[in-house]
Amino acid sequence: MNVFRLAGDMTHLLSVVVLLLKIHTIKSCAGISLKTQELYAVVFAARYLDLFVHFVSLYNTVMKLVFLASSFSIVWYMKRHKIVRRTYDKDHDTFRHYVLVLPCLLLALLINEKFTFREVMWAFSIYLEAVAIFPQLVLLQRTRNIDNLTGQYVFFLGAYRVLYILNWIYRYFTEPHFVHWISWVAGIVQTLLYADFFYYYIMSWKNNVKLELPA
């Protein structure tokens, strides 16, 4: 495993830790999109079907289980926890799941590396992950006061995507058979979605003012 990949996994993990911290200790999910969290739970469930088939490494298995467990528990907290769910900004989180899920499913049926159940689900999870942040970005735009933890959560998620691209570039030059167009194209699209957010995040940090996205 190269340093970009490890750093990518760690920022991904950090984003989950930041979100759980907010939910668990502050008992708030204000500014967090339930739609995005539900989409992530679907993404991990579809992609990690290989847990039952492949064993890659202990690291790999543990990380997959952590992402599965954390994504489902975040959804549970936001929907069922009696204090947390009251802080959910339902009125502004109006993005419809099927707008993203259906096109991704269709695309996965058409463009995949092999037409088998697991490969189609893998491609579906890659496409869906690329756009799953959309409801969250829309909610951020509608949120007047973006708190620090929410901003950091999205920032770490974006950093994870940038680091994964560096990891692919590194692997492309060091591993002869490492070519996965599906994940590369989807990954680049996914990273570009964060570009706007990154700009405003860095500006707010530089000028030491509160993060706010223009409507």
Binding site: R5, D9, D50, N60, S183
Partner: peptide, 10 residues
């Protein structure tokens, strides 16, 4: 093989 390099990522 190619399948393994894909599934080792998260």
């Amino acid at each position: 093989d190619s399948e393994d390099t894909k599934h080792d990522e998260l």
